[in-house]
Amino acid sequence: MKGLLIKDIRLMRSQGALLLAMLILAALFLGVVSSDVEPFFVVAYITIFLSIFVASTISYDEYDNGYLFLMTLPVTRKKYVNEKYIFGILISIFAWCVGMAIGTALMIAQGAETGAGEWIGGNLMYICIAWVFMSIMMPLRLRFDSEKARYANIIMFALIAAVAYGVSKISQYVPENILRNVSAFFNTLGNNGILALCAGIAVVALLISYICSRHIMEKKEF
């Protein structure tokens, strides 16, 4: 597992460094030039984009038929999946820290008056979103080769958008009193409660995703 992590960190260092630099530059550019860009956006942007990149390290493993050789090393299928998820979680935390540092600097520069609790709590939500994205992409990437996975990703995100749109439309037809109750429920949760709920959803998504990935990897023919 340690060997795999070193490999992915090395891959990330050479391939992901450029992506991270671009993300940071773009974030700073957006923040400085158009001062109406929320520092929250900067954190979300860096955390989610870099986390999505984790699934693409599978493409680097796959490049030039490399998967085959990788699995002849002292690596079991189970350990390979474990490592990908651990690496993904580590990278999302790293990306979030980078995003937070830049976002905080921007916030101070812009003189925004967001409280520390709201700032950190609000941004923690983005790690949860990044984990949900990762949960969707990881099994897809393991199941399909890079070309097919691209289409699978597009279809998956289109489906999510369609469901979100559908849910927002359905809310118009839901009786007023139910909506009021739902809204009241979320209000009672408070900010911390909502954050905990999101974290719960993200962890459940990761768990389901991990189980799917393990199953896919067990069945994979190289």
């Binding site: 795999l4 391939q15 680097y60």
Partner: peptide, 28 residues
């Protein structure tokens, strides 16, 4: 760990360098 393998059409990822492989091999 006790097996060494070379395969005809597969090897280390092309996006790595030899200096990246050394710590990977040492850990594995």
């Amino acid at each position: 760990e006790k097996i060494g393998v070379t395969l005809a059409e597969s090897g280390f990822s092309g996006y790595l360098k030899v200096k990246d492989i050394v710590p990977v091999m040492a850990a594995m």
